[in-house]
Design a protein around this nucleic acid. Structure first.
Lengths: 341, 341
DNA sequence: GTGTTTAATGTAATCGATTACAGTACGCGT
DNA sequence: ACGCGTACTGTAATCGATTACATTAAACAC
């Protein structure tokens, strides 16, 4: 029903080849022909059929981004950065948020690996079983990962330096004199950043010639947004006869949960308990007291990942090494003090 | 290079028509043929070419969602709900976030209106000039709007009841005895919810036989995330000789900005100033004091919008009226008190 | 005037599925 | 034995662009 290229060609008195060239390679077409074509397009309100083009060129100018959820602040920033970079390169973004649902992830991967579905994939789902990801990695479609690393997987990976993030936070607390420090961490078996964080925690102790109390390391499988489980874990920690004087939370959201529990119990932060977060999300500045946390370069990650992916897709050599660690920075605010102060 | 349907057909000893039927309408194919076909597909690792299918069927099973940004909590929830609904109906989501950039919005609309780009559009960008949106509305592609309403635009629209949201918040403050109440609102010329909110504000006063002080109604053009402008506006408000005893913020983020300013000035909430927000975002529970705000049914909006859109695309009659207002609910916490208490 | 290059355009094959239409074979009723 | 319906499958047109290759005309050199 709507006009197609043939109609435009007829009206402009040229062939479809010329119309196509006027659009895609104007330098091959004479000025006047080009303007006749453009006028015809205008007149008929012609719209290109993207499916036809994709079929012919085997390109979609779409890239897929696989993420666990759209509503975590860090992922948010990464996605926005990726979208900006994508737009600049004239690509659009297919957002695939798995919500931690393996079946859904599978479905998305199925979709992505179809022919002429997307031109490239950014994989930012940190908590997936390798077998899914492997299917992606085996396919011919260009792939870049963020915050994911699995043995025997050759795809390039751009990671926040979470060894350093938790190291810095822990070090800060150790310097203040804390010794009974708890770590609230994720434990999904394939969650690489969780391993890094634990390492950072232990290294910080080792650096001070100490060792952490293993019973103060809590690792839950729950995603962040499942609040109740975290709350229970925090309660348990504070119920211990010899309760910790400080808590290192693996992200701000969990730190806020600690705030809520303390508020309910009448515990003062930082006088009775020091707390650190990670991610430096917006509310970290607003809560009372403002949260000491670690700033991570989310939008830089997004940009780098996209740059890398574009390079892969164009067969160019990538701008950064295939395994890149991104620096993080401790932001000291007011949620930590000397123990028993 | 990768296997196509013809290869599968050859290997299975059937025609491509049969392969296609085995995949799309299995009931038309005998059991054994079907399993031969499936085996061949497995063997060759055959992947359907989506562009070819789209070209033929004139469908993409993709819907576009146009939003101002991905990182506002409410939009976030709406998008997640939409994605859930889309997945259930076997569609994928193309996320188009305009970032308040008119040029970018234009580009996205251009893309969307191409042939065989998307099957439907959800438009949730509240601050756009009607001429852009009109281009969309004129096209034949099914369209549903959220939080947008312009004269002479016939597309269905699903709106939060912001007359009621601000009405309830204002009423709450009036009931506590406040009279000098300020409204912090957006003022983008085409931003329908802003008009609704102002109306709610004024109606609440009218309901008490009063009228608001017009000089206490602040309307900024800035989007929420441009923090500095808001901070300046709040400072100005509190610098007035006869400063307001309460502030109605049009969303939680702005209310938190009020918190920050008060903290810097040593003003206590709610003793020295009462504050209300809107959206009931996550941090509203964590800030100190917990914020009195209005809960809006974000994910319900997403689901309804998608349902409506699906109905449009299938030519069915829509499940709700084309202009639907969604109920909101005041959540009373601890950020409001009697004036001068 | 002839040969050669360059610019502009046309012809037609092609991408890989879907599906209308046309068989074919078999079973069943009479 | 014949007609007819049912179940299954094949043939080939079609969707709408892109592009290799062919063609034409003009420009230019000598």
């Amino acid at each position: 029903m709507p006009a197609k290229m043939e109609d435009v060609a007829r009206l402009a008195g040229v062939s479809t080849a010329t119309v196509s060239r006027a659009l895609n390679t104007p330098e091959l077409v004479s000025q006047q022909t080009r303007s006749r074509v453009l006028a015809a397009i205008e007149e008929l309100d012609y719209k290109l059929n993207l499916a036809a083009r994709s079929l012919r060129t085997n390109q979609t100018r779409t890239i897929a981004i696989v993420i666990p959820t759209i509503s975590e602040p860090v992922i948010n920033q990464v996605v926005e950065a990726v979208e900006d970079a994508a737009i600049n390169a004239d690509y659009t973004l297919l957002v695939c948020s798995t919500r931690g649902d393996a079946q859904r992830e599978q479905a998305y991967i199925e979709l992505i690996t179809q022919q002429t579905a997307v031109d490239g994939v950014l994989y930012i789902s940190p908590r997936s079983a390798p077998e899914h990801v492997l299917k992606l990695a085996r396919s011919t479609i260009p792939l870049v990962m963020c915050n994911y690393r699995a043995d025997g997987l050759s795809a390039p990976s751009i990671l926040f330096d979470h060894v350093s993030s938790i190291h810095q936070a822990t070090r800060h607390l150790l310097d203040l004199g804390h010794r009974r420090i708890a770590l609230l961490n994720l434990a999904a078996p394939y969650y690489y950043p969780a391993r890094m964080r634990r390492e950072g925690f232990e290294q910080a102790f080792a650096g001070a010639g100490l060792a952490p109390d293993p019973s103060l390391i809590v690792q839950l499988e729950q995603p962040t947004y499942d609040t109740d489980e975290w709350r229970a874990a925090i309660e348990a920690l504070l119920d211990r006869p010899n309760r910790p004087t400080a808590i290192v939370a693996f992200n701000d959201a969990v730190a806020f949960e600690v705030y809520a529990v303390c508020r309910a119990r009448g515990l003062r932060i930082p006088e009775d308990l020091s707390v650190t977060g990670c991610d430096d999300t917006l509310p970290a500045r607003y809560v009372n007291p403002p949260l000491t946390t670690v700033r991570i370069p989310a939008s830089r990650q997004g940009h780098l990942a996209m740059e890398y992916l574009l390079a892969c897709m164009n067969g160019e050599s990538p701008p950064i090494p295939p395994l890149t660690l991104l620096d993080v920075e401790l932001i000291v605010r007011e949620s930590c003090a000397r123990p028993g102060a």
